[in-house]
Each structure stands twice: as C-alpha cells, then as structure tokens.
Amino acid sequence: MRYFLEIAYDGTRFHGWQVQPNALSVQEVLDDCLSKVLRQPISSTGSGRTDTGVHASQQFVHFDVAQQLDTEQMVYRFNRLLPDDVVARNLYLVPDEAHARFDAFARTYHYHIMLAKNPFKRYYATYLNRLPDVEKMNQAAAILLKYEDFTTFSKVKGDTKHYNCNIYEAAWSQEGEELRFTIRANRFLRGMVRLVVGTLLDVGRGKLTVEGFEEVIASQDRSKASGAAPAEGLYLAKVEYPEHLFQKST
C-alpha cells in the first residue's frame, strides 16, 4: 500500500533533502525513522529537493508498505523517534500509482528577510540593513509571469531536461520589520528561487533596473543572474495535489 506523509523540517543542520554520502540529509533521517517504526526497509520519495540549510513548512513524501496502517498512531510513533527539527504532520492512504513528485501540480516557496537585526531569526531569515525598493521589486517580479524559460535562473549542473516553468504568483509583501517573497509555480529548477530572489534584491538596491531584470530573463544566460540569496531565508511552504488523491484511512 502507498502512503503520503506530510512533514516539516528546520533545514539548518541538514545538507539538503536528498540522501548523499558523508553528509546528513532529511531523507536519511526520515527513512531511518520509518524503517525502524515499520520494521522493514523504507525508501521515501519526496515531492522535491531542498538545498543545504533550506527549510520546509510543508513537504510530502510517499512510501510503500505491505500492511494497512493506523494513520494517527503512526504519526504519533514517527514523531516519538524523529529528531526535534523534523515533524510528521499527517499520513494519507493514496492510490498505488500516486507519486509525491509527479502528481504535485503546484509548489509555493517563501523567502524571508529581516530589516532589523534579530539573533533569534539568524537561521530562518536573511538580514538586510536597509529597506530595498519593494515597489520596484514587485514590478520586476510581475515580469516572471510573462516567461516560461528560466534557463537564466538554473544551476549549470543537473539532469534537467528542460528549463520551462509556469509561474502563477510572484510578489513581495512587508509586515513590520519583515519582508516576504512568495512564488508559486508548477515546478522549479534547482536553485531557481534563490537566484530569482538575489536578482530581485539587486533591483531593490538600485543595481539593476526593472527593464534590466527582464533582459536578464530573456537572455537565457546563467551568467547574467545575480548571486543566489542565502539559504536560511528560504522555505518550501506548500505542495498542492488533486483533492481526489487523498483517501484518509482510519
């Protein structure tokens, strides 16, 4: 039987989502927990990867197990074994063909910026010592919705077959001493959001015009993008699936 598990995690001490040699990953910690609780080898598949230091307020994984599970009891047992920086939220019985990565039709990321130095936010937001021009950053962000090819904002390495993404939302908001960038799309390229944020911040600092930002996108040239924004401000915030996919078990 196939299950979807909804989790969240603080990415500070992890070298990203995906299992890798000689580095601690969220997937490694999760699979170890699932295998011990379910008393069989479990290999989970995530809805997507997050890089070193990136957080997730919502992430989904799927895994297969021979028997039907008591979902509430399993969530309780998973959380007893998981470390404090990873939490299991919900467990859903899904059709056998359901796939955490390929069935997701939209993903949302948030990027957090603090405008006042805050020692309690140092691993969870990027600090800027002056307010960038939010209006210009929003003008530039709106241009993202006009394009599909985001080669400019992709990492050179990887097995990506194409660089097309459909962006549905991209906007900055301010609340007190915090700025938040929200971007929602059907898919994202590796490192894309941090490169987008870094380039938008250059618009906000006056280093790049709004028109120049569009030229950067249209160039399809990775060297034209600004440096990537730091990892600690980035959160995978939401993963969306068709409603019929979830069949909550008892």
Rank of each mutant, 00 (worst) to 15 (best):
M114E: 03
L115F: 10
A116T: 14
A116R: 15
P119K: 07
P119S: 11
P119D: 11
F120S: 13
F120I: 08
K121D: 15
Y123P: 00
Y123C: 12
A125D: 08
A125I: 12
T126Q: 12
T126N: 05
T126E: 07
N129K: 15
N129W: 09
N129R: 15
P132V: 03
P132N: 07
P132S: 10
D133T: 10
D133R: 01
V134L: 14
V134Q: 10
V134D: 06
K136A: 14
K136Q: 15
M137A: 06
Q139Y: 02
Q139A: 12
A141D: 06
A141W: 00
I143S: 08
I143Q: 14
I143M: 13
L144M: 12
L145A: 00
L145I: 06
K146T: 08
K146F: 08
Y147P: 05
F150D: 07
T151M: 11
T152W: 00
T152L: 01
F153P: 04
F153L: 09
S154D: 02
S154P: 02
K155R: 13
V156P: 00
K157T: 14
T160S: 11
K161V: 14
H162L: 09
N164E: 15
N164P: 01
C165N: 04
N166H: 14
N166R: 15
I167M: 06
I167V: 15
Y168Q: 09
E169V: 10
A170K: 02
W172S: 09
W172V: 13
W172L: 10
S173L: 09
S173H: 13
Q174H: 05
Q174Y: 05
E175L: 06
E175W: 13
E175F: 08
E175N: 15
E175S: 13
E177C: 14
L179Q: 06
L179T: 10
F181M: 13
F181Q: 11
T182W: 01
T182H: 05
I183D: 08
I183K: 00
A185E: 02
N186D: 12
N186S: 09
R187T: 04
L189D: 10
M192K: 01
M192Y: 03
L195H: 11
